[in-house]
């Protein structure tokens, strides 16, 4: 009896946005009297960090510090339409809508500043700390708080912007399947290193190497969260999870966490991750959606590593000890 090691690869792509498009999202943005920019949405944050990443997009576009941005989301009485958080669309769709809204607001912000500073708006720039200043000058500048006060109480102007992103819906050709399903594609290659116990059939994932191309990592720390959390889910899907363990037999379905198996904190693979960035022309600052795909490539990488380790080709998920042992038995019979 032995513990057999193996390595497996998998390389995948994943589409950003609702399949076939037709899934708009909107953003409204306005400045308060004291220069805080409120982004109003009806988008949902499931924990992936949408509220943070769209604030970053707005801060970048407005040229203001992140602290000057507030995100107010998900009250349908006040927030403009969003199709929803699914299909790796949130960052791409909502990010683009927010950038569009912020551009419009920035233009007005610069106009207001130009009037206050008595210069041409085209000669102004933002310095990222809250000042709008004349290019090349250190003296001619105005802080966004003073600027917003002037807009409200002196100039009578609303500093606001509207944004929407829509990829028009593609209709597939029924005969050929010709269609435009996606906005862009992110890419990943996973390498899994496993150990198979040929006595118990238990598979342990020792190491997982994740290389992702995601357009632009708008927030590298949150991108990393998606990679690691997704890799864990991929391992879990590969080795443990199902609501119907004897599919297609409907019996013996788990009903709680003690029966629905997933790896715990003691079962983690050592992870190493690398991000490549090939900005998407239509992405917010080049960003693509990777929230979903991170669970995908680990599964076949593990299947391929199991084969490499012990010669058993697993054809059905999850790769339970029973299936591994039956596979090993079949190999022994075939070799006998």
């Amino acid at each position: 009896m032995a513990r057999l090691r193996g390595r497996g690869f998998a390389a995948v792509n994943y589409p950003t946005g609702m399949n076939l498009g037709g899934d708009p999202s909107q953003a409204l943005i306005h400045s308060t009297t004291t220069g805080t920019f409120v982004i109003t949405l009806s988008s949902v944050d499931l924990g992936q960090g949408l509220k943070t990443v769209v604030a970053q997009c707005a801060a970048e576009t407005l040229g203001l510090p992140l602290e000057m941005i507030l995100v107010d989301t998900a009250d349908t009485d006040t927030g403009p339409h969003c199709m929803g958080t699914f299909a790796s669309r949130g960052t791409h769709r909502v990010g683009n809508a927010v950038i569009m809204a912020a551009r419009e607001a920035r233009e007005i912000m610069l106009e207001v500043a130009a009037e206050e500073l008595e210069v041409d708006a085209a000669d102004l720039e933002t310095d990222g700390t809250g000042f709008i200043k004349l290019k090349g000058s250190e003296e001619k500048k105005i802080h966004v708080v003073d600027l917003a006060l002037a807009a409200h109480f002196k100039q009578g102007k609303t500093i606001s912007g509207r944004g929407i992103f829509l990829k028009p819906k593609s209709e597939p050709v029924p005969e050929t399947g010709e269609m435009d399903p996606d906005s862009c594609q992110a890419h990943a290659c996973t390498v899994a290193e496993v150990e198979v116990d040929d006595e118990t059939g238990i598979v342990e994932v020792l190491n997982m190497y994740n290389v992702y191309e995601m357009g632009r990592a708008l927030n590298p720390a949150m991108a990393h969260q998606q990679i690691v959390g997704g890799a864990w889910m991929g391992i879990s899907h590969a080795l443990f999870e199902t609501t119907e363990p004897y599919y297609p037999d409907r019996a013996h379905g788990p009903t709680d966490y003690s029966e629905y198996l997933m790896p715990g904190p003691a079962d983690l693979a050592a992870m190493e991750s690398v991000i490549l960035e090939r900005p998407a022309a239509n992405g917010p600052y080049g960003g693509k959606g990777i929230g979903e795909m991170t669970a995908n490539s680990p599964i076949p990488a593990i299947a391929n590593a199991i084969y490499d380790a012990c010669g058993v080709r697993v054809e059905s998920m999850p790769f339970t000890p029973e299936k591994i042992l039956r596979g090993l038995d079949a190999l022994r019979t075939a070799n006998a």
Binding site: Q225, V228, W232, M262, G264, P265, A266, L268, M271
Partner: peptide, 20 residues
Amino acid sequence: DVVRAISGNVCRCTGYEAIV
């Protein structure tokens, strides 16, 4: 010790590594 202490706490998002 940390892993044992949180072994009754399920997380579906993070993969636990950052929590530990």
